[in-house]
Design a protein around this nucleic acid. Structure first.
Lengths: 189, 189, 189, 189
DNA sequence: GATGAATGAGTTTTCATTCAT
DNA sequence: CATGAATGAAAACTCATTCAT
């Protein structure tokens, strides 16, 4: 028996399947409906608008990514290990979930995400932010805005993941470890 | 007397003025025509399609950026100084040309840029790529694909420039220098 | 125990509650179902179509109005008193039942009421029509088509009732009596 | 050479031609376009929305009606003659322009006219309202709100015009004069 | 009887592109 | 060269109606 959550998920999955190839704009409701083996009308039974679908999908992916990140237990680590875990978790997550990486990129610079704000506002990341703040206060890593630290670690890992997905580069574990290691050095006081 | 190049430039500038605010999708030909104090019809005299406008604008901005980059003479520098110049030139260029930064983002994840390829293919960057290759061969910097080096320097600088433009962070010259310095350390053998 | 008539009535009442505010068009089956604490499906058990609901509601209201009209015993009156009773009953009925007045207006000029015919065809009004015919034959009131007499009395009363409902005018009993009186004079030979 | 006004008029006329038969709802943009021997897209070159078309048409018809009314010079008449002229002008206008009568009815009780207000607010009618006010002050006609007087004259005339258009009644000039005369008596002090 | 998910045709609106002037 | 009216193929979204449960 299908539940409300199931149906929503099927629609979100269909959307996720289509966006990397078609783009946000060309992923029409009709296309989503067909991919979900459904009809345009029913989509509006589960979502208010195309906007709602896109935002819901964004939230879902963000939640899954942060869960994966925290599942790797970066909180209980020493500072450099913590940064490396964040870096490597991010890279591996998006290489494993290429559609997530591609969707996030599509989303970030679309009309759907028109308000730009600090990632510090993201509640999912709260424990991580606190841990890093503590590292800064202990004088272990440079006193930089969290957005800068994020850009130097997560964004870099995500961007290399995309290059790997696209087949442009092939980074092995040793190289990855080295690059992750570099982010420690970059942030080290 | 207006030349063909002039008219094209006016149209491209109008497009650039509109996209950061309206987005690629909502920057319609009619809007561009009005901004360029022209008409929809004449735009098709100078460009084949909206696609053509977007791509031409992309090429123009890319050329201007690489010119700015090379104008800072990174080629004749020692390896770390070279990387820092690339980093700082990129940051300053996009902070000075916020519309360029915003357009590039809009472009990168749109239906217009659907083919992804290595930036090594970019002819404008050829001399820079050669210089860095030489640094690698001399064993000064890590043996990484150029795309990775690019991601660790240019992309990071561009991404921080966008945060600065958005007002989310405020990096002063000292901090910038430190972060640029960090990219040396990150790539150092 | 709920009877078929009960359920139909609940649905019609729900429809009547919604139409004044939402209009005929925006009073969707889904909305009616919710208002009737029921479901879209079951509505089609009691009515053939939305059309059927609207027409049934129209008939119901028309019947209730004519009942109220005849309850005021205009038949046994002298001609002018009769016209005044019709006038005043109509006015008071629609002021007391504002939703009925508003529905009738919505209905009259909708796609639902596309066939226009003489009100003389309305069986409910038969006794009244006969009484007025008799008045005409006795030479008491002008020899005008019944539709004209109807327009000069009932329609005017209904239209003033709507103004009163809307709060545009405030007619007291004295004024009402005077206007009703005027309809006698208007029809007097 | 066609002017902007011409094109707008053609579209409004097409709309007016369709509404009596199809109703407001079923007069789709596609239908209007076909009737105007045009295309859906161009409609939006001349009007902002379907709403805009409907409202513009309403204003146009209202203006034409009030012009016809004032063209009959009711202002320079003695009070009863004035009322009769208003009555007869209204009747003849709508019999001559049946589509106008039918459109006005469709409009009045549609989602397009959602705010109801006193007709005293209608600027076109200002001189007429003043003349009637003066009549009231001179003690010639009853002291009633203008909306009531309007309902007793214009609305009645319009409503009989519609019956005549529908072929339900056939009023000759003598009868009309008599009914118009009756509105004097109805309003006489 | 009752539910509400599902359908899909139909509606308004947009916009790149063309072309008569 | 230049204009801007005109086209028409989508797109998002709605809703009466059906039907499996």
């Amino acid at each position: 028996m299908t539940t409300l959550t199931d149906r929503r998920t099927v629609i979100l999955q269909a959307t996720l399947d289509l966006i990397p190839e078609h783009g946000l704009l060309n992923t029409t409701i009709a296309l989503i409906a067909r991919q979900a083996k459904s009809s345009p009308g029913i989509i509006y039974h589960y979502f208010e608008s195309k906007n709602d679908i896109i935002h819901s999908l964004y939230q879902l992916i963000l939640r899954q990514y942060t869960e994966a990140l925290l599942a790797d237990d970066p909180l209980s680590q020493e500072w450099c290990e913590r940064l490396k875990r964040i870096w490597l978790s991010t890279f591996h997550y998006f290489v494993a979930q290429p559609k997530h990486a591609l969707f996030m990129e599509q989303y970030k610079n679309s009309a759907y995400a028109h308000y730009s704000q600090s990632i510090e506002a993201d509640e999912n990341l709260a424990p991580l932010i606190q841990a890093i703040r503590a590292d800064i206060e202990k004088g272990l890593i440079k006193n930089l805005p969290f957005d800068v630290i994020y850009a130097l670690t997560v964004d870099v890992a995500k961007s290399l993941a995309k290059l790997q997905i696209a087949g442009i580069i092939q980074l092995d574990e040793a190289m990855l470890d080295e690059i992750a290691e570099a982010s420690c050095r970059a942030l080290q006081v």
